[in-house]
Design a protein around this nucleic acid. Structure first.
Lengths: 256, 256
DNA sequence: GAGTGGTCTAGACCACAGA
DNA sequence: CTGTGGTCTAGACCACTCG
C-alpha cells in the first residue's frame, strides 16, 4: 500500500503525472494493482494527506497544482517597506507566480454581522454587536489552464463597528494603496504591534468544502491581531489554509 | 458514524470517560452500536485526529491525558526575564502543571553526529561534518498515575563543533542556569535574533512511534534558529510535536 | 445512464501486550 | 493463549458530474 503510494509519488515528482493532470480512477488503480477498492482509495488518501493530490467527487483524482509549499513570512510581510510595494498581497502574488501559478482572485464578500465568539472577545465587543467582515476566497490556477483551480486560503478580517465607521474605504472592494492597515492608520488607528496565534484543527464541513479537502483533514489557522499604541485590538484576521500548502516563518530580535 | 463519534466526544468532555481511562474495545463498540468493525475503528480514528483519544496496539484505546492545547509563546519565552525564571523549560513545566499533568523528563541523549541535511545547511557545515546533538523526548503523565504517559514533544538541538568545543557544559545533562542559550552567551556566542519556521508534515515512522500517533497523522515541526550579532546561526532546534496538542503564538512590534 | 469518489458491511489475517 | 489495535479483501449502496 505504502509501496504503491510511493510509486505514484515518484511518478508525480518526476513529472510523468504533471500538475493538474487526471490520475487513474480508483477502480482502474484497483484493477491495475490487483488490490481491493478500499485499499486503492487509501493509496490516494495518503497522497492527499501529503498534499500531492486532490479528489473531486464525480470527476476524478488530480495531481495537485502546487507540489511545494508557499512560504509566509509573518514578521517580514508587514514591514513598511514591504507594504509600500504591495505588502502582504503583493508578496503572496509574487510567491505564487514563482511557482508557475496565477492567483485568480474572487470578489471580497463585505458585510456587517456578528463575529464568532472568539473574535468578539478579542475585539471586546458585546456578544450581539455586529462587526465589519471582509471575506476572501483565494484560489490559484495553472497559467495555461484556468479550468482546474485549488483554493489555497480562506481569509476573513473583522473590524469593530466604530473603527469601520471611521474608514469608509473598508467597505469598498479595493482598500487602496497599502491596504486596510494603511486606511486604519489614516483614521488614527495605526497598528504598532501584531500578534499571531497558530493552530492546527479539524476543518469544519464548510471549510473542507471550500478548500476542497477531505472532511477529516486538518487545517492550519492563523489568528492575526493588530494592536494600536494603547493596546486595543482593531483588526482580527482569520486565515484558514490547507495544512499541506504552507510554511510559516517568524523572526525577531531577542528581548524586544 | 460522525454521530457516534460526537456522542463519545460528549462523554469525554462531560467527564464520563475521564482522561487516561480505557474506552470500550473496537469489537465492543462494534457490537454496542451495531456497526461494522472498520466503522467502529474509524470512530476512534476521528477522535484520534482530534487529539481526544489515543490507541496502543495490544492494550486498547484511552482517553487522552491532555484534552486542551498547550500554548507556546514563541516570542515571550526567550525574554531575559523569562529565562532567569527557568525560561522556556520553566514556562513549559508551569503550563503542564496548570493542566493537571506532570512532566516526566527522560535523560537527554547527547552525541556528536552528522546532522540532517537541512540542519547542516543552516549551520553552514560541510555535509560530513559532525555536530553536537542534544535530544529530548518529553512525556507527560497524570499526577496520580504515572503508568500511562503521552509524549508531547521531541526536541533536538544542534550546535556546530567549534561552538560546542567552546561550551563544555553543552555535553552535560544539566546545562545550568539559563540553559544552553546562556552557556553560548558565556562563550561569546550570544544570540541576538531568533527565527522560527513552522511546518505541518507527515510523521516519519520513527516519529509516529515515539509520539504514539498513527503513522498517517501529521506533526507540527518548528525549526528554531538562533543568530549571533554577526548573523551566524549557532543553534538549530527541531521541535516535533503532535499537531493536536499545541497552539503557537508570536508577537512583535511592527517594523522592527 | 455511465463513471466518478465517498461510505458502509462482513469477514479475514497479522502484530503486539500481557496473564 | 486470548484480547487488543492495524491492515487488507470483496462487495454493496449513495451522491455527484457530465454527456
Amino acid at each position: 500500500m505504502q509501496r504503491i503510494a510511493a510509486s505514484i509519488q515518484g511518478k508525480i515528482e518526476r513529472g510523468i503525472y504533471p500538475p493538474g493532470s487526471l490520475l487513474p480512477s480508483v477502480p482502474e488503480l484497483q484493477a491495475a494493482e490487483g488490490i481491493a477498492y478500499q485499499t486503492a482509495r487509501e493509496v490516494y488518501g495518503v497522497l492527499q494527506a501529503q498534499g500531492l493530490v486532490f479528489s473531486r467527487r464525480g470527476k476524478g483524482t488530480y495531481v495537485s497544482l502546487l507540489l511545494g509549499k508557499i512560504l509566509r513570512d509573518g514578521t517580514g510581510r508587514y514591514l513598511p517597506s514591504a507594504r509600500s510595494e504591495g505588502g502582504a498581497v503583493g508578496a503572496f502574488d509574487a510567491e505564487i507566480r514563482r511557482l508557475g501559478l496565477i492567483y485568480q482572485p474572487l470578489p471580497t464578500v463585505i458585510a456587517r454581522e456578528r463575529p464568532p465568539k472568539r473574535v468578539a472577545a478579542l475585539l471586546e465587543l458585546h456578544h450581539a454587536t455586529k462587526a465589519l467582515k471582509r471575506e476572501r476566497v483565494m484560489p490559484v490556477g495553472l497559467a495555461e489552464d484556468t479550468e482546474v483551480t485549488e483554493v489555497i486560503q480562506l481569509a476573513t478580517s473583522w473590524f469593530p463597528p466604530d473603527v469601520a465607521d471611521a474608514c469608509p474605504q473598508l467597505e469598498q472592494q479595493n482598500t487602496g494603496a497599502g491596504g486596510s492597515k494603511s486606511r486604519l492608520a489614516d483614521a488614527g488607528y495605526a497598528q504598532v504591534r501584531l500578534r499571531e496565534e497558530i493552530e492546527v484543527r479539524p476543518a469544519s464541513p464548510e471549510e473542507a468544502n471550500a478548500l476542497g479537502i477531505p472532511t477529516d483533514q486538518a487545517v492550519l489557522e492563523i489568528t492575526h491581531q493588530g494592536l494600536t499604541e494603547d493596546g486595543r485590538i482593531v483588526e482580527v484576521g482569520l486565515h484558514v489554509m490547507p495544512r499541506t500548502k504552507w510554511r510559516l516563518s517568524y523572526e525577531w530580535k531577542i528581548g524586544a
